[in-house]
């Protein structure tokens, strides 16, 4: 059953007032895929994620999860299938434990069950948050707050994970750890993840597919080998070149004439 879960986005369009932000976006995702949405500022990355979650209602087009259009699901049903971490995370004076427990809210009405607690506990441990477990979230660092938000999204046990710049507040070590763990979880649970990202080099290391956005249009839906300088120049409006290190890691830098 789980293998059939699939995301199917068809001709998605969205506008804020009369300003078009997304035009005709179509792509499909299979379970186990982890995808980066890349593009310059204002290219519609965040809007795309919000439309996939129905936080914003798309103007046109459909989003299907496992063959069913999202519009048919209730808000609670969507929250059990799709988890979303916004770019700007606000923190409240809740303990890390309670903040993560909130991720189980779509599954219970008033009292969290023993299994809810078990799920929360193991996710806190997995993300290495256990030393902070009773600390108030509003006293944590930016990176720790981001981890708490990610833990909350993961305990929602979603089929699709939408993360809007999940590593923006993390230092290099935390970025590497977190993205590695995320890739592991996506494979292990056979779910899908879409991350909007700014750092293209980090994306190249951890993702296996890239959606390239510019001015709300999907310029490319490529895998590693498709990330050629021409298409990136088109997206970022900047001449780039791609180097490959002796370990086979490629990195992309601005081309110096």
């Amino acid at each position: 059953m789980l293998d059939n879960v699939m995301l199917d986005v068809e001709n998605l369009a969205f506008q804020y007032g009369c300003r078009s932000v997304l035009h005709d976006i179509s792509f499909r995702l299979a379970p186990g895929e982890i995808v980066a949405v890349l593009g310059p500022n204002g290219s519609g990355k965040s809007t795309l994620l919000r439309c996939l979650n129905r936080i914003l209602r798309p103007e046109r087009g459909t989003v299907r999860l496992a063959g069913q259009p999202l519009a048919a699901f209730s808000a609670g049903a969507i929250a059990r299938r799709i988890a979303y971490v916004p770019q700007h995370i606000e923190s409240a004076p809740f303990s890390v434990y309670d903040a993560v427990l909130l991720g189980r809210k779509p599954y219970f009405t008033w009292r969290a069950s023993e299994s809810d607690h078990r799920i929360v506990e193991s996710m806190i441990r997995r993300l290495g948050l256990d030393p902070l477990v009773m600390r108030p979230v509003d006293q944590l660092s930016g990176g720790e707050t981001q981890k708490v938000a990610l833990a909350r999204a993961l305990v929602q046990e979603p089929k699709l994970l939408l993360l809007d710049e999940p590593t923006s507040a993390l230092d290099l070590k935390n970025q590497v750890e977190l993205l590695g763990m995320l890739r592991e979880i996506v494979r292990e649970r056979n779910i899908m993840a879409i991350l909007s990202m700014h750092d293209i080099n980090v994306a190249v290391r951890y993702m296996n597919r890239f959606l390239l956005l510019r001015e709300g249009r999907l310029l490319g839906d490529v895998r590693h080998e498709g990330l050629v300088p021409e298409i990136l120049e088109n997206v970022y409006d900047l001449p780039v070149e791609i180097h490959t290190s002796e370990h086979g890691i490629s990195f992309i830098i601005e081309k110096i004439e």
């Binding site: 936080i55 606000e90 909130l102």
Partner: peptide, 18 residues
Amino acid sequence: WNYNALLFGEETAQGLGV
């Protein structure tokens, strides 16, 4: 619980089905 979710921001709350 819905008010609690809202304390973490509107978008987070919406993502949790509020």
